[in-house]
Amino acid sequence: MIDWDPLVLTFKLAAITTGILLVIAVPLAYYLAYSRSKLKPILETLVSMPLVLPPTVLGFYLLVTFSPGHPIGRFIENELGIQLLFSFPGLVIGSVIYSLPFMVQPIQAGFAGLPHALKEASYVLGKSRFTTVIRVLLPNMKPALLSAVVLAFAHTVGEFGVVLMIGGNIPGRTRVASIAVYDEVEALNYDLANTYSLILFAITFLLLLLVYLFNGGYLKRLFHKMRT
């Protein structure tokens, strides 16, 4: 009998991670798109690191940092009362870092692709930077936002190495679907592994399909046809 917990946990993790990333990534991408600071290349590199770094390496550093032996881990555990190792909050932080480039890069490209005059026109009309971002810039880069959200979500769903390093395989807490697949294969439960895999495959396929349909304008044309 299939245990739905790993799937529920996976999508809960992906949803929370995506939400947090959206809040972080918009200001970060804005800075990276418009800043001329000398620090920018370094920050850009750091943001992109999870793209090329083996997830186990990232997981390893997080494991060390979160452990009670490390000042940061100790501080978080003693002062904030949050245990990050082998816990869901730890997975969220790991996933946020792991999926950061997938959220930041499309949004950064979206900002950079907007005509400069839009921002200037809004400023000249007396609108603050915040108002300009929320009401002028973001609404005109919806495809970039959608790509970013879906890529970050799907990438978190597909996370494996980082979870294995810092989350382990605790049912209901850190046992996400990708881990469950691995676990069932180890236990020679190929049928169950296949079920999990198929579900993950189907959902991520649909998510990406949605992005391509939307950004390619197919949906718009379809709705248009349906209305006329």
Binding site: P115, A117, E120, A121, Y123, V124, G126, K127, S128
Partner: peptide
């Protein structure tokens, strides 16, 4: 700042 100038700017490419 531009926001504090009360200026009207009609941009060449409309914006």
């Amino acid at each position: 700042k531009p926001q504090q100038r009360n200026v009207g700017f009609m941009f060449q490419d409309y914006a």
